[in-house]
Write a protein that binds this DNA or RNA. Sequence first.
DNA 1: AATCTTTATCGTAATATTGCAATATTAAAC
DNA 2: GTTTAATATTGCAATATTACGATAAAGATT
Lengths: 110, 110
Amino acid sequence: MGATKTDHFTDKQNAIATLAKALGHPARIAIIEYLLKVDTCICGDIVNELPLAQPTVSQHLKELKNAGLIKGEIEGNSICYCIDEKAFQKLQTYFTNILTKAENKKSNCC
Amino acid sequence: MGATKTDHFTDKQNAIATLAKALGHPARIAIIEYLLKVDTCICGDIVNELPLAQPTVSQHLKELKNAGLIKGEIEGNSICYCIDEKAFQKLQTYFTNILTKAENKKSNCC
DNA sequence: AATCTTTATCGTAATATTGCAATATTAAAC
DNA sequence: GTTTAATATTGCAATATTACGATAAAGATT
């Protein structure tokens, strides 16, 4: 035991959970926010922005990339990391949907 | 080590990360979706809906409650669990904001 | 009051995550 | 080709999460 039983849930449920999980750490939220703050995508100074050691930041970046939340392209000897809008679009649509459904229920509910 | 360094990040970053983390498991996504599906909030059969043992489901419910994503009221000898819209509102607003910012950046970017 | 039903808690095993020092890799700069 | 700079990988310790059987708690039913 200890491992998540992903095969018992739908692909959609697993997909949303994966995205949410990747954002479930303040360092990764901070990375996303930093990527939005800087003007261009050529941003090789993420490490200096965060209170974490370089290998730790690298690992967080990898997780965000695996989840599809950011894209990374090699640009010379540094790397150009970017927000991947598609993933955030998915999340936003999902939550909008939840709110709509919750609103409709309101009448016969606590 | 192994513990998240929450004190190095802003309250807002930690708050969003906490909400995202709570949704970072397919069972908890499934619970939210089930709560939306049933007509009323008096729903004592969440356990039967999930492919997990009762203590496991109870634990997931507790985590969702701690994160503020659901509310639970004792209703006789069963419990009335409900979506807490405020938390989902926060998430939706957050992602809308991210998308807006990402859109503005698009020009001078990959 | 004995029993049933529903939910929570405890204890514990298996696994995953977090964080970093040390080291590797790779391309630019000299 | 050697050094420098930026990022990735490895290995490992500390901690957290996931899952469940056993048990407890508390109101409902008989």
